[in-house]
Design a protein around this nucleic acid. Structure first.
Length: 437
RNA sequence: GUGAAUGUAGUUCAGCUGGUAGAGCGUCAGAUUGUGGUUCUGAUUGUCGCGGGUUCAAGUCCCGUCAUUCACCCCA
């Protein structure tokens, strides 16, 4: 009896073309992160539940993959990279300098219901800066979000930012501090269910006039400045928090990065450890997909594990969700392999020669392979096509004797006949520069 | 976790009120192009997601289950 090959709900296999695309994106992200002076770290996939859960409970608890290990320890799979990072910082505090800027690209697991762009196992690409609480660091994260998105080839996206501090002051001002959780939850639905319904929902928690005020507060004006001004007015005047926003915006203007960034007072959610600025990013063409890159400032995350004050700010790219989105927007022309040249097997006794030729190509940085068996040329062409290999070398006995070969552009079916290996290498390199990204 | 929709050849789909499954594309073989894009001829494929039930008879009705998608919840 055969075992049926299958995988768990929300978990996915990755075919070569998908994995090639994904690892190329990761490579670009790493390059971007490192260009900002961020360093890589890693943490275990499995940790003690008490470490990951903190004092929390709530939603996190429900979504964690939690079980008892063979030593009867209560353990859980990490469900994000930020909480393990907090533990990491507390544990390695003495070995680390501040401010510490790290990136971490790894899988996380959440046992929630699946949907498009929502999986139970997915990659997060976190970048955080801890040890400082400054406008400069908040802005740097914002810059990196933009840089990361463009490194990923996403040009149509909007980053929404907001400051929780201003909102809290506003709620205090209204005397609604205790209801903040409920209010925030309602507010967050603005774009989804619309003005009227939010108003209706809010009325359950407070008087009508206050609900109107809240609604007024969360609707963005037509410019960053105007929105901020209104928020300040409603929150009882400017403060440290609004000053922070102003500073960040000033820097954005200085670098001409305002495009694609908006101050959106209705963005409030995010995990409950955020204390200041919060970021969320939506694809312009697929806002329903949810945020593809979000984060914020958390000024006491490590307090669970350490007495040290460790303010931090960071964000996370949801790589798998983003990929789901990109695939939907522009059926990416995925490559099924990264081979540049295939050397066809015209005559098996020449195999040694073929491998020698391949080695010479590799020395020039050309990725190549030798067709490993005797087969009709037509079949070999078919193979090359399935593997998306752009160039082929045809070299039979006669060519070998005269020291020449035929190089063929497999897609356009044009060939350069009877050229030397050196000439072929030149042509291959020129071709790849032109055709391959 | 709650509510709903969908699940038919590799793929996109058809299959009306129940009567033992079909098309395009693809794939494969042969012929013809000096080394495959054309053309011609022929061929191929399905536990109708899975498991039960109703019925003389189920892809078609009922129940369960799994997966996907949508909404809620939450989030990347």
């Amino acid at each position: 009896m055969l075992i049926q090959p299958r995988i768990l709900k929300g978990f996915r296999d990755s075919l070569p073309e998908q994995e090639i695309e994904k690892s190329a994106l990761i490579k670009n992200l790493v390059k971007t992160f490192e260009s900002f002076g961020f360093v890589p770290i890693d943490t275990p996939a499995l940790e003690l539940t008490e470490v990951l859960l903190g004092k929390g409970g709530g939603e996190t608890d429900k979504q964690m993959y939690r079980f008892q290990d063979k030593g009867k320890r209560d353990v859980s799979m990490r469900f994000d990279l930020t909480v393990p990072f907090a533990r990491y910082m507390a544990q390695h505090y003495s070995e680390i300098y501040l401010p510490f800027k790290r990136y971490h690209i790894a899988k996380v697991w959440r046992g929630e219901n699946t949907q498009r762009g929502r999986y139970r196992e997915f990659f997060q690409c976190d970048f955080d800066m801890v040890g400082v609480d400054s406008a400069s660091s908040d802005f740097e994260i914002l810059m990196m979000m933009k840089a990361s998105l463009s490194a990923l080839g996403v040009d149509k996206a909007t980053i929404h930012i907001n400051h929780r501090g201003i909102f809290n002051r506003f709620l205090n001002h209204l005397g609604l501090a205790e209801k903040s959780v409920e209010v925030l939850r309602m507010v967050d639905k603005l774009t989804k269910i619309g003005r009227e319904k939010v108003l209706q929902g809010l009325s359950e928690y407070t008087e009508k006039d206050k609900a109107e005020l809240i609604l007024d507060f969360i609707v963005a004006e037509d410019s960053f400045e105007k929105t901020l001004k209104k928020m300040c007015r409603l929150a009882g005047g400017p403060g440290e928090d609004s000053q922070r926003m102003e500073d960040i915006w000033a820097m954005a203007k200085e670098l001409e990065l305002q495009e694609g960034i908006i101050l959106n007072p209705s963005i409030t959610r995010g995990l409950d450890y955020y204390t200041g600025l919060v970021y969320e990013t939506f694809l312009d063409e697929l806002p329903g997909l949810g945020s593809v890159c979000s984060g914020g400032r958390y000024n006491n995350l490590a307090s669970l594990y350490s007495k040290e004050e460790l303010p931090g700010v960071g964000a996370s790219v949801g790589l798998d969700r983003l990929l789901a989105g990109l695939d939907e927007i522009n059926k990416n022309n995925l490559r099924k392999s990264l081979t540049d040249v295939i050397i066809f097997n015209m005559d098996p006794p020449l195999s040694g020669q073929y491998h020698k030729m391949a080695q010479q190509l590799r020395k020039q940085g050309i990725r190549c392979e030798v067709y490993p068996a005797k087969k009709k040329l037509q079949g070999q062409f078919k193979f090359a096509e399935q593997k998306d290999i752009p160039l082929g070398i045809i070299c039979g006995v006669q060519e070998m004797e005269t020291g020449t070969l035929n190089l063929k552009d497999l897609k356009n079916r044009e060939s350069w006949e009877s050229i030397s290996l050196a000439e072929a290498i030149e042509k291959i390199i020129a071709f790849l520069d032109r055709e391959i990204i």
